[in-house]
Amino acid sequence: MAAYVRTVKTASGATAVQIVHSSRRGSRDIEHIGSAHDDVELEVLKAAAHQRMAAGQDELDLGLDTAAGMTSNAKGPLPITSSRMGHLADALARGYQALGLEAATGADEVFKALVLARIIEPTSKLDALRVLQEAGIDPPAYRTVLRRLPVFAEPSWRQALAAACAKHTGLGPASLVLYDVSTLYFETDTGDGFREPGFSKERRLDPQITIGLLTDASGFPLMVNAFEANKAETTTMLPVIEAFMRAHRLPDVTVVADAGMISEANKRAIEAAGLSFILGIRIPDVPYAVQTWRRDHPDQPIPDGHIFTQP
C-alpha cells in the first residue's frame, strides 16, 4: 500500500488536501485533511498531511537539529497543534452583526453558523459542520441543525431578515428597487408538487424551483421568495411586490421593468392593485411628441435626460 499527498480544486474555488492510499490492485482509499483558501493554509495542511503519513516512523539523525541550536533529543519539525481561519471567520461574524442579522434572528447561533459556513464554502448542511471546524468555529450537532430547520423555514423568520436588510439600506417610499428571477435545480428524478420540471435556462430536465430576488439600486438583497418551477416568471412579480409593501408599510410603489418581465396580464394586475409602472419596450413608430420636437428644433440633438410625455 503506497500513500501520497494530492491537492484538488473544489467547486467553491478552495484547494482540498488529501492523502491517497493506493494498492497494486488499483483500489484507493482517500483521506480528506482539509480545504485551504490561500497559500498559507495550503502549506499548513500539506505539512499536517505529511506528518500524518509519517506517524510512528523514526527519522534518521542527520545532526541538523543540533546544528540549529536544538537539543540532540529533538527530532523532526515542530508539531502543528491547531490551525484557524481566524481573520475570515471574525470578519464574516462582524459583517453579520453590522447588517443587523444577529438582532433579527434573536442571536440564533445555529443559523449564524450555517450562514458563515455557506459563505466560506457552499456545501451541504452536513458538510457545513466540517467547514466550521476548519474555520475554528465549534459546530452545532447535526441533529440540532435538523431540529432548527423548520423554524428557519417560517415566513416570519424570512420577514425578520428582510426587515433588517431594509433597515440597513435606509429604504424609504422613494427608493428604487430591482427585481429578477432565477432557477435552482435538484438532482432528483421526481417532483413533489413544488420542485417540478419547468423552463430551464440551463436546458435541464431536473425538477427545479424559481427564485425571485428583490434588491435595492446597488444590488443589496431586500427580499427573496421561492415559487414552483412551472409558474411563469411574469406571475411572480406582483406577489413579491405586495409582500414587500406589507412588510415595510409602503403605500405605493412604481414598478420599473423591461418588457420580458411584464405581460399583458401583469399590467392589468398591477393596475388593479392600484400601482403604476414604467415599462421599457420597443415601439414601432416615432411618437408624435418626438416628431414635434424634431420639427421645432431642426438639426439639434435631443438633450441627455430629456423626457417626452404623451397621452
Rank of each mutant, 00 (worst) to 15 (best):
D189L: 12
D189Q: 14
D192W: 14
F194R: 14
F194I: 15
R195E: 14
R195Y: 11
R195G: 11
E196Y: 06
E196P: 00
P197Q: 11
P197I: 13
G198W: 00
G198V: 08
F199N: 03
F199C: 04
R203W: 00
R204M: 08
R204A: 05
L205D: 15
L205V: 05
D206G: 04
D206N: 14
P207N: 15
I209V: 15
I209M: 11
I209F: 08
I209P: 07
T210F: 00
I211C: 15
L213P: 06
L213E: 02
L214Y: 10
T215F: 01
D216Q: 13
A217V: 11
A217P: 00
A217R: 12
A217Y: 10
S218H: 09
F220L: 15
L222K: 05
M223G: 00
A226C: 10
F227H: 04
A229C: 12
A229Q: 02
N230I: 06
K231T: 15
K231A: 10
A232E: 06
A232R: 05
A232V: 06
A232F: 06
E233F: 08
T235P: 01
T236E: 10
M237P: 03
M237H: 06
M237G: 03
P239Y: 07
E242W: 03
E242A: 12
A243D: 06
M245R: 01
R246L: 02
R246N: 03
R246D: 01
R246H: 06
R246Q: 08
R246G: 02
H248Q: 14
R249Q: 12
L250P: 02
L250Y: 03
D252A: 02
V253K: 13
V255Y: 01
V256E: 09
A257C: 09
A257M: 07
A257P: 04
A257S: 06
D258N: 10
D258R: 11
G260I: 09
E264K: 10
A265R: 14
A265Y: 15
A265F: 14
A265T: 13
N266Y: 09
K267A: 12
R268N: 10
I270P: 02
E271G: 12
A273C: 07
G274E: 05
F277Y: 12
F277S: 02
I278S: 11
I278L: 15
L279A: 00
G280I: 14
G280C: 14
R282G: 13
I283R: 10
I283N: 02
I283F: 08
P284T: 09
D285A: 04
D285W: 06
P287F: 10
P287Y: 11
A289V: 15
V290G: 09
V290H: 03
Q291L: 03
T292V: 15
T292H: 06
W293N: 03
W293L: 02
R294I: 03
R295N: 03
R295D: 07
D296P: 07
D296T: 13
H297E: 05
H297G: 04
P298E: 10
D299R: 06
D299N: 07
P301M: 04
P301D: 14
D304S: 10
D304G: 10
G305K: 07
H306W: 08
